[in-house]
């Protein structure tokens, strides 16, 4: 890297990340100032410095529980993706099946999590299974819709071209419809991954041996809002990291999407 490139890179970083950094720091500083000046009890509203301090003291427990949540999120999301791919292909090839299954999928989205989470724990126990089921339940539909819509977005000329070449329906799906769905898939992925962490925490909250959800529940029951918020901070960080991973994944998987015409 040349000497001139580094300041430019730095300037670009501040132009992109600067506003967000400023707004978040202002919020935290204002919060800290309010707690210090008003003398409000830390059991009602702990200051950010107290949250960070107590969170640091509890770092081993937080890490252990985060790992459990991350595990539930990953497994749940992976099963959800597999199911979404399977069903999206099924309904893409069979229109009547689409009309039969879509209402069922929509109904799964109307179930209030507060009611369904304890039931799922009741049916599947305190292990990993109920978390996987709940995460999958929350993220399946957005992924399915994204994929189904993505297949439909295939350029008709490309499909006609492949058909004229003698490509089978499955071949056209693999060569044209599936790659056409990639931008939609990643848009769905970015939305679902944020639901996924929340879904896992919700499932743990309804009953679990380990996980951020049960950690939050215990902290609340012990009147430790500082630890509740420390766990919230960890889960937010987890979500942001997963979100960032999907963005990087998209860049790697779709190198052509950011290309422009070369003008000699």
């Amino acid at each position: 890297m040349s000497n001139a490139a580094f300041p430019r890179l730095l300037a670009r970083f501040f132009r992109h990340a600067g506003p967000a950094t400023a707004s978040v720091s202002t919020l935290i500083l204002g919060w800290e100032a309010y707690v210090q000046l008003s003398g409000i009890s830390p059991t009602a509203l702990p200051s950010p410095s107290r949250i960070i301090g107590q969170g640091f003291v509890q770092r081993e427990a937080l890490a252990r529980h985060s790992l459990a949540t991350l595990q539930a999120t990953t497994f749940g999301f992976a099963s959800s993706l597999a199911a979404a791919f399977f069903f999206s292909i099924l309904i893409d090839f069979c229109r009547p099946l689409r009309r039969a299954l879509f209402p069922v999928f929509i109904i799964t989205q109307t179930l209030p999590l507060v009611a369904i989470a304890p039931l799922i724990v009741l049916w599947f126990g305190f292990g990993l299974t109920p978390k996987i089921v709940l995460v999958a339940l929350v993220t399946f539909f957005p992924m399915l819709v994204a994929l189904a819509q993505g297949y439909e977005a295939t350029d008709r000329n490309i499909a006609a071209l492949l058909a004229s070449m003698g490509a089978s329906r499955w071949r056209i799906f693999l060569m044209a419809r599936l790659p056409s769905a990639l931008p939609y898939f990643f848009a769905g992925l970015r939305i679902s991954i944020t639901y996924a962490v929340v879904g896992a925490i919700f499932a743990e909250y309804a009953g679990a041996a380990r996980g951020l959800g049960i950690y939050i529940l215990n902290a609340k029951n012990n009147f430790r809002p500082d630890l509740v918020l420390a766990a919230v901070f960890v889960s937010a960080t987890l979500t942001l990291l997963l979100f960032g991973a999907t963005v990087l994944l998209q860049r790697a998987a779709m190198p052509w999407a950011r290309l422009k015409e070369i003008r000699p």
Binding site: D155, N157, I158, A160, L161, S164, M165, G166, M175, A176, P179, L182, M254, W256, A257
Partner: peptide
């Protein structure tokens, strides 16, 4: 039988 080489409207190149 696919007797024809067909060039559809536009270019129909696959962007990927």
């Amino acid at each position: 039988q696919h007797r024809f080489a067909f060039m559809p409207q536009g270019d129909a190149l696959m962007p990927w």
